[in-house]
Design a binder for these strands. Structure first.
Length: 597
RNA sequence: GGACUCGUAGCUCAGCUGGAUAGAGCAUCUGCCUUCUAAGCAGACGGUCGCAGGUUCGAGUCCUGCCGGGUUCACCA
């Protein structure tokens, strides 16, 4: 459990650690670094010291060692009391420590988070779609991760520039262009009522069908399959089209522009629904010329070498890798060349101290190589590049493939989540006097909350399974569970009497209240940890844990009917802060929170 | 074949730099709405942490080997 070992009171902890260090030095002449952990909830105490490391030097039983240290600490007034279980020294602190800690947290309007932008500027690249088909579940994971990681960094005080590279050029784009011009009969998004990206995707699939049947015909006519794949008429035509595009043929460029715009319109619609956005778009049709000069300069500096045929390579054998091509023998660039150039361009555009690429783990090798190359080219920022590599989303039937139609479409999935949310809400029947418009807004909040939480709560680097047949849950460890707790807290606040004040000096919090205070105070360090690990899952799990604790408290403690006004004020404040932390962390995950549900 | 990565309850997942009896949710079963929202709370059931060694006072966590899944090793992007 997350809350278990993240220590809530760093100052106290470090003080105690030095004190223990002195005691251990004094008793056993050992100079050891002391690390405390939070006491497990089945034992009495707040902090625990593991004494095994000193046992050998002390030449005593672990229990005796713990006793000695504990006694010294009590005498020094560092702790109130202690107990010893095997080699574990459980220490009880004065509960005022937690109250004071929480008080400081509660009085800070910004939840003790770092000031915005106080930690410099950083670039996050994510999304990076091809403009030949609609977005699917894999893209959703990418977008949610990228967007969420950006939010988390922002919350941790980093100014984030969100960018994407749009793959708007190349043979795959020409495929859908060709199929549309041959079979499209002038269809447009307007004439068909289809979203632009879906219309273009339809012709991408159409191309593949035609292409496959051509191959089959050729093979039946006696051609080898490999040859048929290269000589199928539609592919040849697509390649001709690409050539024309590169030569600047006006008709082709016009078509390209038109169809891309359809796609962008479709994408924007999906992005808006998902709540993701970008500060700058890079288009491959513009960036594909970048990088050549950098490579040639690197060649002069001896970073790269040239083979007899004129192609340019880098030798990475001393890194345990092999040789990698960076320029073709005809002098044209490859994927790597462009990425070198684009990275350099980005750091010219923005004065950032680092950049993260949110890209699937099938490109692990590519980014490993890219980062080494940029380091060898001597860019200082190359030390701060990171690949946020995430696992793919699998279906029970296996991999998703756009061309074969075995994908979970992003728009469909979003819509069905919203419908599920509506159905469940209506069944519960709590919204009878809510205006229709507000209800629709709420269904979106809940449906998207469920979807986003479902995806973000799992560790990015793990591949995840999605079963479309089993709808995403709205109970248990889910977005709506957390949203529900938030809504209940808001309801409390609406009913709260005004003008009550907390009596800090004479609080005497009960166990559940202390648990909540400890959990709340950790929020900034959880944000920091999530930022450091670039993992929304860290925040999702922390928040789930917090909400479970709050629900336990809520169940057993009356808030509005507590025994005194001071206690009502305190419990309301606790609740309010839980609500604020929920809102803040859900905001980091791109999830909205409702005032009612 | 080389490299990387993953393997924890029937299913989906937590488990931080090694620490006490491995935790949640879903599913199944049992309680709790004449007190603040039951999308909730409490409980039961469910595990040789892929297997075998090793390091350590202590291993789900670190090391080695094996088994199984995935990715990658293009003058594609």
């Amino acid at each position: 459990m997350y809350a278990c070992r993240n220590l809530p009171t760093p100052k106290i902890v470090t003080m105690l650690e030095t004190q223990i260090q002195d005691i251990v030095q004094n008793l056993y002449q050992v100079d050891a670094t002391i690390e405390l952990q939070e006491t497990r909830k089945e034992f009495e105490g707040d902090l625990t010291l593991v004494v095994f490391p000193f046992v050998r030097a002390a030449k005593k039983r672990p229990e005796d060692v713990a006793e000695e240290i504990g006694a010294d600490l009590v005498q020094a007034g560092a702790i109130v009391s202690y107990n010893v279980v095997k080699g574990f020294l459980n220490m009880v602190l004065d509960s005022n420590v937690f109250v004071n800690d929480f008080k400081a947290f509660a009085l800070d309007a910004n939840l003790n988070l770092p000031a915005p932008g106080s930690k410099g500027q950083y670039i996050v690249e994510y999304s990076s779609p091809n403009t030949n088909k609609p977005l699917h579940l894999g893209h959703i994971r990418n977008n949610l991760l990228g967007s969420s990681v950006s939010n988390i960094l922002e919350a941790d005080g980093v100014a984030v520039t969100k960018v994407q590279i749009i793959n708007d050029r190349g043979i795959h784009i020409c495929k859908s262009m060709l199929a549309w011009s041959e079979y499209g009969n002038g269809e447009t998004p307007e004439s068909t009522g289809l979203k632009g990206d879906h219309l273009v995707g339809k012709y991408y699939v159409k191309f593949d069908q035609v292409y496959k049947s051509e191959i089959q015909t050729l093979v039946e006519g006696g051609m080898s399959e490999d040859e048929a794949k290269k000589l199928a008429p539609s592919l040849v035509k697509a390649q001709e089209m690409l050539l024309k595009w590169e030569q600047g043929d006006e008709a082709v460029i016009d078509l390209w522009r038109t169809m891309n715009n359809w796609v962008y319109e479709g994408f924007n619609h999906t992005y808006k629904k998902l709540g993701v956005s970008f500060d700058k778009n890079y288009y491959e049709s513009q960036t594909y010329v970048l990088g050549k000069d950098d490579v040639l300069k690197g060649l002069e500096d001896g970073v790269f070498y040239r083979k007899e045929d004129g192609s340019v390579w880098i030798d990475l054998e001393d890194e345990g890798l092999d040789h990698k091509l960076v320029l073709r023998r005809d002098g044209t660039s490859v994927y790597m060349t462009q990425d070198i150039g684009t990275a350099i361009q980005r750091f010219k555009d923005f004065d950032a101290k680092g950049m993260t690429y949110v890209v699937g783990n099938e490109q692990d090798y590519h980014f490993k190589v890219l980062f080494i190359i940029l380091k060898r080219l001597g860019y200082t920022w190359a030390e701060s590049l990171h690949h946020l590599s995430y696992g793919m989303v699998d279906l029970p039937s296996g991999k998703m493939k756009s061309r074969e139609g075995t994908v979970v479409d992003a728009d469909d999935l979003i819509d069905s989540m919203i419908q599920d949310a509506a159905a469940i809400s209506k069944e519960l029947g709590k919204l009878d006097n809510m205006p229709e418009e507000e209800q629709d807004q709420l269904f979106q909040t809940l449906g998207l909350g469920a979807l986003k939480y479902f995806i973000l709560k799992v560790d990015p680097k793990k591949r995840m399974l999605f079963n479309p047949a089993e709808s995403i849950d709205f109970n248990g460890n889910t977005g709506p569970f957390i949203q529900y707790t938030y809504a209940r807290i808001q309801s409390l606040q609406r009913k709260a009497p005004e003008g009550l004040t907390v009596n800090w000096t004479d609080l005497n919090p009960n166990e559940e209240e202390v648990v909540l205070m400890k959990a709340l105070v950790q929020y900034p360090s959880m944000v920091e940890q999530a930022a450091k690990q670039l993992s929304p899952a860290v925040l999702a799990n922390y928040t789930y844990d917090l909400v479970k604790k709050y629900n336990g408290f809520y169940q057993n403690n009356s808030i509005l009917n507590a025994e005194s006004d001071e206690r009502i004020a305190f419990r309301l404040l606790l609740s309010k802060k839980v609500g604020e932390v929920i809102a803040s962390s859900m905001n980091c995950l791109g999830i909205q929170v409702p005032n009612r549900m």
